[in-house]
Simulated assay, not measured.
Amino acid sequence: MKSFEKYFMNKQYSRVKALGDKLAEIDPIIDWEFFRPIVSEMYDNDSERGGRPNIDEIVMIKMLVLQSWYGLSDPELERQANDRISFQKFLGFPERIPDRSTVWAFRERLIDTGKDEIIWEELQKQIDSKGLEVKEGVIQDATFITADPGHQRVNEPRGPEAKTRRNKEGEWTKKNGKSHFGYKLHTLVDMDYGLIRRLETTTAEVHDSQIDLSKSGEVVYRDRGYFGGSCKGYNATMKRAVRGHPLKIRDKLRNKRIVRKRSAGERPYAVIKNIFKSGHLLVTTTLRAHTKNLFTCFCYNLLQLNTLQKNNPT
């Protein structure tokens, strides 16, 4: 009976595939099985939280990918995963679709164990194994990821004791006369392939120059916001005029060259905010915002890998 049901669902899905399915394109790009042991280790212990998960580990990871790709809340993810055949095909037609509580608990466990970072590292290993290592240089930039401030007054404390659901750690900041509340996503993008290689999440008030994602030996292109900040790589940061020291013509020409180089670093943010609809998060802490950002960047890299594969078929 189960084999007949799977046959029927595949036949139904063939009509969807004929119309075009982006999920079917990104599914074979990476080897999902390498993520299984990472997740399995979270449940391999003797504590009361031990035991194996009731749902396949790859299904759980793919659920978070679907959530980030389509900008879905946990309840909406559950509904659409049960309703959309393209989602079920991407998940491998599992016998059971994880409910919203299972998704929330899984994501929280990733945060508690730090396995979300190991999942990101495994993705980077697979990218490198395809011959897509960083060669020419990298671009560091940052963007605001807003959150709901809630109804808490400005002078009331935030943090774990805050009596609100949405603004425990988010902070206010102002840029170009406009106020922003929430977090900031910092990314490092390679210039060769446009892939996000590293990321960090902070509260919104943290200045860009305080975050350095570079490594020794890398040429790092950055805008004026990083002027004066530390840099572990070769510092290709745009210069900024300061009182009594206007920019010389040589510095202006250098800035123009850097602008051309670093412009590609804006594309991930356009995709994250306009396609994945992840420029605004309903989360309460920086760690939760970071995991959300991590899976959104995971999705961006899958999209970019698919583009690179189409442009350079082997």
Score class of each variant (00 low, 15 high):
residue 278 S to W: 01
residue 11 K to D: 13
residue 136 E to M: 11
residue 298 F to S: 11
residue 78 E to M: 00
residue 219 V to P: 05
residue 185 L to M: 06
residue 89 K to I: 01
residue 242 V to R: 02
residue 276 F to K: 02
residue 300 Y to S: 10
residue 213 L to G: 10
residue 260 R to C: 13
residue 252 K to G: 13
residue 291 T to H: 11
residue 288 R to L: 08
residue 227 F to C: 14
residue 195 L to Y: 01
residue 138 V to R: 03
residue 105 A to T: 02
residue 133 E to Y: 02
residue 105 A to S: 08
residue 125 K to S: 15
residue 246 P to D: 10
residue 263 S to I: 12
residue 56 D to T: 02
residue 200 E to N: 13
residue 47 S to K: 09
residue 273 K to W: 10
residue 165 R to T: 10
residue 137 G to R: 01
residue 281 L to V: 03
residue 115 K to H: 04
residue 112 D to M: 10
residue 108 E to D: 13
residue 190 D to C: 11
residue 301 N to M: 07
residue 60 M to T: 04
residue 298 F to G: 11
residue 121 E to T: 08
residue 126 Q to G: 07
residue 130 K to R: 14
residue 306 N to F: 02
residue 137 G to E: 08
residue 13 Y to D: 03
residue 125 K to N: 12
residue 146 T to Y: 06
residue 23 L to C: 04
residue 84 R to A: 07
residue 211 I to Q: 03
residue 89 K to H: 12
residue 299 C to Y: 02
residue 169 E to K: 01
residue 15 R to T: 12
residue 189 V to L: 06
residue 153 R to P: 11
residue 211 I to D: 07
residue 203 T to N: 00
residue 113 T to G: 08
residue 30 I to P: 09
residue 90 F to H: 03
residue 294 L to I: 00
residue 142 A to R: 08
residue 234 Y to G: 09
residue 120 W to G: 11
residue 166 R to F: 11
residue 58 I to Y: 03
residue 77 L to W: 00
residue 141 D to A: 10
residue 55 I to S: 09
residue 205 E to R: 12
residue 116 D to Y: 03
residue 154 V to Y: 12
residue 313 P to A: 04
residue 258 I to P: 06
residue 103 V to M: 01
residue 296 T to Y: 06
residue 156 E to D: 14
residue 153 R to V: 11
residue 131 G to K: 09
residue 167 N to H: 06
residue 278 S to K: 12
residue 239 K to A: 13
residue 85 I to H: 05
residue 83 D to M: 05
residue 42 M to V: 00
